[in-house]
């Protein structure tokens, strides 16, 4: 499905580029079979793959609490939430595959540490309050990041984001409700919530990436309308959104510099520890090894299932083929009939 630029002569090349630029300038969408510059394709593959990996790895910190959820209600909610994150990963891998890459290959690159995922998932979940804080802050930050991506210039990515954003609101609300419940509980429960907020606040701000001046590719992505807002702008939006929610909840955000600035009409806030972000991104966060190792094990442990299913499918197909050659009706294999009830074969 991919098209390369090599076949076209220089004039044809200019025409293709001009058409592409026009589509971007008019805020229309690029679709998979359209011509696109190699760098645009490469940037998208990297960004969508990283995004997909983040959803998949992101199942682990919360997934660790499924078996220890304090009630059946919380367990069912957490299960559904983690399952959604698996779905988000799959929507995004599907979007990446429209660019001519292969999901199995992307998984390999993740496991081999050749592709990254969001730094936030390299922190441990120490108490059940972390589940609530992740829903509130981490999914909240993800919403800030993802809502503008619904208008991203690449059609499949934008459509995947629309689907994802519809589901994120449940994630954030279940987290906030969990925290409200704990805050109405004992002093020890309130302390757990505050402790979780203290640990997750700064890593949540780092989710938006390095500051604009240290993010050289940002401008190019914005020119292509893959990205719609700078890292710092999105971070600011997140802070402005979250401060009143923290007040209602009755927790303190661990930033002495955080205050309302009436001139700007926005909050001033402190600087995240960018060295920490660098450390965690480059593999030296508290849980990097554990996360990738767990993903690798799951992938390898599933290998026999994938092989068995493929072998079964092959056998079934051969049987159907043989039955067809023998002139029999193969419609009772359970695959069902085709579109509009017409028999497929």
């Amino acid at each position: 499905m991919t098209q390369t630029t090599t076949a076209a002569g220089p004039e044809a090349q200019d025409r293709l580029q001009a058409h592409f630029d026009g589509v971007i300038a008019h805020d229309r969408r690029i679709e998979p079979r359209d011509w696109m510059p190699d760098a645009y394709r490469g940037t998208l593959v990297r960004q969508i793959a990283q995004h997909a990996h983040s959803e998949i790895i992101g199942m682990q910190p919360e997934g660790a609490w499924i078996t220890r959820a304090p009630s059946l209600r919380r367990k069912a909610i957490l299960f559904a939430k983690v399952q959604d994150e698996a779905g988000h990963g799959l929507y995004l891998y599907a979007a990446a595959e429209t660019l001519g890459v292969d999901r199995a290959d992307l998984t390999r690159r993740l496991i081999e540490g050749r592709q990254k995922y969001s730094s936030i998932f390299n922190y441990p979940t120490l108490s059940f309050a972390d589940v609530g804080v992740i829903g509130w802050l981490v999914d909240g930050a993800a919403i800030c990041n993802q809502v503008p991506l619904c208008r991203s210039s690449f059609g499949p990515y934008a459509r995947a984001m629309v689907r994802i954003c519809k589901e994120e609101s449940f994630h954030q609300r279940q987290g906030y409700e969990l925290l409200l419940t704990m805050m109405r509980g004992t002093a020890a429960q309130r302390a757990m919530v505050q402790d979780a907020v203290d640990r997750w606040w700064w890593p949540s701000l780092m989710m938006f990436g390095p500051p604009d001046e240290a993010s050289p590719n940002s401008a190019r992505s914005m020119g292509w309308k893959i990205k719609r807002h700078s890292n710092d702008e999105l971070r600011q939006r997140f802070v402005d959104m979250t401060v009143p929610q923290a007040e209602k909840l009755g927790v303190t955000l661990p930033d002495p510099e955080l205050r309302w600035n009436p001139e700007r009409g926005r909050h001033d806030f402190g600087t995240p520890d960018w060295d920490e972000l660098k450390r965690v991104i480059s593999g030296n966060g508290p849980c990097n090894e554990e996360r990738v190792e767990r993903r690798r094990r799951a992938h390898e442990d599933g290998a026999w299932v994938r092989r068995a299913a493929a072998a079964h499918a092959k056998k079934q197909a051969a049987r159907q083929e043989a039955a067809r050659e023998a002139g029999q009706d193969a419609g009772h294999t359970g695959t069902g009939s085709g579109a509009d009830g017409r028999e497929t074969r």
Partner: peptide
């Protein structure tokens, strides 16, 4: 019916 995306599966039944 509207196209919603894609997925991998061993066969048609699993795809459903």
């Amino acid at each position: 019916h509207v196209h919603v995306g894609s997925l991998h599966a061993a066969d048609e039944r699993m795809a459903l």
